[in-house]
Design a protein around this nucleic acid. Structure first.
Length: 274
DNA sequence: TCCCAGGCAAGGC
DNA sequence: GCCTTGCATGGG
């Protein structure tokens, strides 16, 4: 990796593939451009990622932020070696070899994954885009993700108007809770189970949404978001059905160990696309 | 048309 | 504690 004033150049693509990173369901604010590059947004920041056979170039005004965002200081070779011998991992790692878990903003993940519940990815992206257009700061040729203060000013009828459906009251309530002092920062200091418990106090956040926030914003690895796709994986791995999501979560963390969060992403991406 | 989507809240037991 | 039901919306 080479860091320059307005760009980051990645020369080893064995553990970096921008399509894998963006299409594995951890981020909703991005789009593909006509030339095959991708534009990626986080809070009020933006980066353009152009990848060819032997390198990727990330162009941005804030390279330091995106080094952290793309998790570029972490050794994914070690993670893959740890996971490779575990059930269904070798094919999943091969298929999603370029996956990296992003370090996204806590507030943006909280709101985004409340919207994600029982929803299709294209529609999730649409709701979030309208949210940014209506409440986010105008950055010139794009919009920032709205602040907690701005979102707390709006009532549930506003969130209904941008298509949030039955999640509208959840968004209004949770924005208010954050402005009123719910401590998102301190969750950095606790483990996955405790973090999950705390996030579930917010309206619209249940165990699965909480695990996604813990994985994609806090980089907690002792979590395992159990959604409709992972339930299919569970049947493959364990061999039977289970109706209790928390029991599945425990069993999967037990099976995949200290890198459970990474395992979940490789397995999710492989199951959803194949 | 019907089914489904990175599930959750509320209520019953 | 666990299980069931209702839920807005739009893509396939």
């Amino acid at each position: 990796m080479t860091l320059e004033k307005n760009s980051i150049i990645i020369k080893d693509l064995s553990c970096f593939d921008i399509r894998h990173i963006l299409q594995c369901g951890q981020i909703f604010r991005f789009h593909e451009n006509d030339d095959g590059s991708y534009t990626v947004y986080s809070l009020d920041k933006r980066a353009i990622v152009k990848q060819d056979e032997d390198r990727a170039i990330i162009t941005t005004d804030d390279p330091d932020y995106f080094v952290k965002f793309f998790d570029l200081d972490r050794d994914y070779t070690k993670i893959k070696e740890n996971l490779r011998d575990k059930p269904f991992m070798s094919e999943a790692i091969e298929y999603g070899s370029g996956i990296r878990i992003l370090n996204q903003d806590k507030w943006e993940m909280l709101i985004s994954f409340i919207i994600s519940a029982n929803n299709h990815i294209p529609r999730i992206k649409g709701i979030i885009n309208r949210l940014c257009e209506r409440l986010g700061e105008n950055m010139g040729d794009y919009y920032a993700f709205p602040t907690p203060e701005k979102m707390a000013q709006m009532d549930e009828s506003f969130y209904s108007s941008i298509g949030a459906g039955y999640r509208a009251p959840y968004l209004a309530s949770t924005a208010r809770a954050v402005v009123d002092g719910f401590d998102l920062l301190d969750i950095e200091n606790v483990d996955g189970n405790e973090g999950n418990k705390r996030l579930c106090k917010l309206l619209g956040v249940g165990p699965k949404v909480a695990d996604c926030i813990l994985l994609f914003a806090y980089h907690k690895q002792d979590v395992f978001p159990v959604d409709t796709w992972i339930k299919k994986v569970y049947k493959d791995v364990i061999g039977d059905n289970c109706s209790n999501n928390n029991a599945m979560r425990k069993k999967l963390i037990d099976t995949y160990g200290e890198y459970s969060g990474y395992a979940q992403q490789y397995l999710f991406f492989n199951k959803r696309e194949n």
